[in-house]
Design a protein around this nucleic acid. Structure first.
Lengths: 209, 209
DNA sequence: AGTTGAATTTGATCTAAATCAAATGATAAG
DNA sequence: CTTATCATTTGATTTAGATCAAATTCAACT
C-alpha cells in the first residue's frame, strides 16, 4: 500500500493531522521553493492546521495579527472599510497564502479584516516561527522570499490593470487570471476588488461580449 | 585623517571608484539588511557604478533586462505605453532600487521602459550575480528578501490609494509620501502614476486647499 | 411549499473626471 | 533677444461610471 492510498479517515486524529501536515508542507515546498526534510519537519512543529467555517473572521481591523495562513482547501479574502464601505483587497484560494500584510510585516494594527468565504482548511504559521526558521535555514529564507516576490508581482499586475483600464477591461483581466472566480466569490467583492461598483459590474456582465 | 575626510577628487579614478562602491554597498547594507564584509566585497566585485545623463533610457520595451539598479544619486522612472500613452509605473530616488521587475523576475520581455530623469549615479547588479550571491550568502538572500518585501508593501499601499479615492485624495497621498516630488518629476508623469490626466492634476493643484 | 433576507439586476439621474482644444509660461539653443 | 520646444494652465464639452432607488432572483430555514 503506497502512502497515497492510505485512507486517512481510518487513522487516529493525531496521526491523521501529522500526516496531513507533512503533505501540506511538502506541497508548499514543491510549489514555492524546496525545503530540506529537516526544515520541513521543523516547520511542521511550528505550524498548525485549522478548520474554519464559512463566514468566520480570522483577523479584525485594529488587531495586531502576526499570523500567515496557507490555504489548503477553501478561499478567503482580505478587506477593509472605507467610510463604512466594504472594499476587498485580496483573494486567496487553494495553495495561496493570505495574511494581513501590513500588520504582519510592519507590526502595526491591521487595517484589514480577513474573512473565510468557504469552509476551509488552513495552515497557520506565526511570524515568530517564520523569523526563527528564516534565521536558521537558508532554504526557508528563500521560500519566504519566493512567496513575497510572487505577491509583489501579482500586486504590480493589479496596478497596471487598475491604472487606466475601463471597468469592462478590468473585469476581463480578473477573469483571465481567475476564470471561475464568479462561482466562488460574490459579485460585490469582485466589484470592489477591481475598483468599480456592484451595479456597474452587473451591467458589464449583462453585455453579451 | 578619518575616512570621511578623504577628498575623493584627489584620488586616482580607480581608487575613487572602489572607495565609492564600498561606501554605496555599506549604505545598502545599512538601509536594507546587514551584509558580512566578505559578502560586501563580493558584491563589490559583482556590481558596477554607472554615470547616466538625464533623459537616457536604461531599458526599452521588448528587451530582456536582467539588471537591477540602485540609485546613488538622481532619480528614474519606469513607464509603459498603453495605446501610445505614456504611463508612469514607478519612481525611484536616492537609495531606492529600480528594475523592470517583470523582465527581471520572470525573464520575459520588458513591458516597461526605464528612463533616467536627472543626471544620475547608479549601481548596477545583474540577476546572475544576485542569484549567485543569494545562493552563497544567507545574508544576501535576506537582503534581497527585504528589498522585495518593501516593494510589495509599497505596491499594496498604492493599490489602496488608487482603489476608491478621488483624484484629489490620490494626489494628497503621493504628496504625503513624497512631499517634494513636484520639484523633481514633471506633472505629466505624476498624473499618469496616480491614474489621472494631466489636466485634472493641474486643476487640483489650482485649488487653494 | 412559503417566508425571510441576501445577492443581483434594471432603471433613472447625476457628477467627477476624461477629452478636445487653445492659451500661457518656462527653458534651452542658436 | 528670438525662436523653438516642452510643460502647465484654462476653458468648453462629453461620457463612463457613480449614486439612488426599486424590482427581481436566489438560497436557506422553518
Amino acid at each position: 500500500m503506497t502512502p497515497q492510498n492510505i485512507d486517512l479517515s481510518k487513522l487516529t486524529p493525531l496521526h491523521n493531522t501529522l500526516t496531513n501536515k507533512k503533505k501540506i508542507i511538502h506541497i508548499i515546498s514543491e510549489k514555492y521553493s524546496p525545503l530540506s526534510s529537516q526544515c520541513q519537519s521543523e516547520l511542521s512543529n511550528n505550524s498548525k492546521i485549522l478548520g474554519i467555517k464559512k463566514g468566520e473572521v480570522l483577523v479584525k481591523e485594529g488587531q495586531y495579527s502576526d499570523k500567515a495562513y496557507f490555504i489548503v482547501q477553501g478561499c478567503s479574502r482580505a478587506y477593509y472599510l472605507k467610510n463604512g464601505k466594504d472594499i476587498s483587497d485580496w483573494f486567496a484560494f487553494e495553495n495561496d497564502f493570505i495574511s494581513s500584510i501590513n500588520s504582519f510585516f510592519r507590526n502595526i494594527q491591521s487595517p484589514h479584516f480577513i474573512e473565510v468565504l468557504e469552509n476551509s482548511t488552513l495552515l497557520e504559521i506565526s511570524r515568530d516561527s517564520i523569523i526563527e526558521l528564516s534565521d536558521k535555514y537558508h532554504d526557508f529564507e528563500r521560500l519566504s522570499k519566493t512567496i513575497v516576490t510572487n505577491t509583489m508581482l501579482r500586486l504590480q499586475e493589479r496596478i497596471v490593470s487598475m491604472q487606466f483600464q475601463s471597468a469592462e477591461q478590468k473585469y476581463k483581466d480578473i477573469l483571465s487570471t481567475h476564470p471561475n472566480i464568479t462561482q466562488r466569490i460574490p459579485l460585490t467583492h469582485i466589484a470592489s476588488y477591481i475598483g468599480i461598483t456592484l451595479e456597474t459590474l452587473s451591467r458589464i456582465r449583462g453585455l453579451k461580449s
